[in-house]
């Protein structure tokens, strides 16, 4: 007790105050980390600011009717939004038709059926698939998927098609869906599986009616990640969908088409590169903003869904 009185000299009060050097050091660590956080916020704000500014410029330069026409041909002043949006949606849809069942099936297999040995072999292979550059998949979609799959099923289909690109994107997102969904399913406690087996349920019933619903938030997250990736995917579409020169509005997946991201890409480096201070160039920013809002909404929707269905074990 007496040692706490301020009258007493000696090392005790000093040691309580701590070393000033250490406290200075802690303050500077704080400042460094704070600036890292601030810089990333500043960059985001800067990007959004320049996007919005240029997009407004663009909208002032053009007639708004140019945004709703027969197709997307930036050099001819046709900036039809629905062409690109429907294009993106079709690609995403085809990709999900491919990757949804395969990814989920792989996840169920790896989490519920595979022996530990099999899982040790399969997981790395899946990760290799995730590591294949999208340009390779794009090329594969153009030179193999289009002639061997799409043209076999739809004989009227040509070299380029939304379907071929969509399948390519689907292959790209299989590993994302499979591995995130598998993690979610493996996190479901053994006790729930035991409850199910104890009631005389078979493995498939246990997997589909107990484990899958219990992991639903993670599986939704897996699909949202897959969809985000599909919407954002550029190169596969630019190579295989055949819309680089512009595209008329279409809902036909067997023909060529264009998506938001591929349009941005071809505007910036491809055959559509506009000369001079054209509105076409600024349409990039406008498309960028739309893409930004699109993915933001998707993530928000995913978040709401995940929170609403989150289960505590």
């Amino acid at each position: 007790m007496t040692q706490l009185t301020p009258m007493l000299p000696g090392p005790e009060p000093m040691s309580l105050r701590g070393s000033p050097r250490r406290r200075r050091k802690e303050r500077s660590v704080h400042v460094v980390l704070l600036s890292a956080a601030l810089i990333s916020i500043l960059i985001s704000v800067g990007i959004v600011y320049s996007l919005v500014g240029n997009a407004i410029d663009f909208l002032q330069k053009i007639d708004l009717s140019q945004l709703w026409t027969t197709g997307y041909f930036p050099r001819r002043g046709l900036f039809d939004l629905k062409t690109l949006f429907i294009g993106s949606l079709l690609i995403t849809g085809v990709a999900l038709v491919v990757a949804g069942p395969i990814g989920l099936g792989a996840a169920i297999y790896l989490s519920e059926y595979a022996s530990p040995r099999m899982r040790r072999i399969c997981k790395p292979i899946l990760e290799v698939l995730a590591g294949i550059p999208s340009v390779v998949i794009g090329f594969f979609a153009l030179t193999w998927i289009a002639p061997n799959i799409v043209q076999r099923i739809f004989s009227q289909s040509g070299t380029f098609s939304l379907a071929a690109a969509g399948i390519g994107v689907g292959i790209l997102i299989i590993p994302i869906i499979a591995s995130v969904a598998e993690d979610a399913m493996r996190a479901v406690p053994l006790a729930l599986r035991e409850a199910s087996y104890g009631l005389g349920a078979r493995k498939i019933t246990t997997s589909v009616r107990v484990v899958l619903p219990a992991a639903v938030s993670g599986i939704v997250a897996a699909f949202i990640l897959g969809i985000s990736r599909a919407i954002g995917e550029t190169l596969v579409v630019a190579l295989a969908a055949g819309g680089s020169g512009g595209s008329v509005f279409t809902t036909d997946i067997t023909g060529p088409g264009q998506t938001v991201t591929a349009a941005i890409a071809s505007l910036s480096f491809g055959s559509d590169q506009p000369a001079g201070d054209d509105a076409a160039f600024q349409s990039l920013y406008f498309l960028g903003i739309i893409l930004f809002i699109f993915t933001l909404l998707l993530n928000l929707a995913g978040d709401v869904f995940v929170r609403r269905t989150r289960q505590h074990y």
Binding site: P189, A191, L192, E194, A195, G198, P213, A214, Y313
Partner: peptide, 9 residues
């Protein structure tokens, strides 16, 4: 079982 294990349903 030892610990109650209701399904999240």
């Amino acid at each position: 079982f030892q610990k109650p294990n209701p399904f999240p349903k």
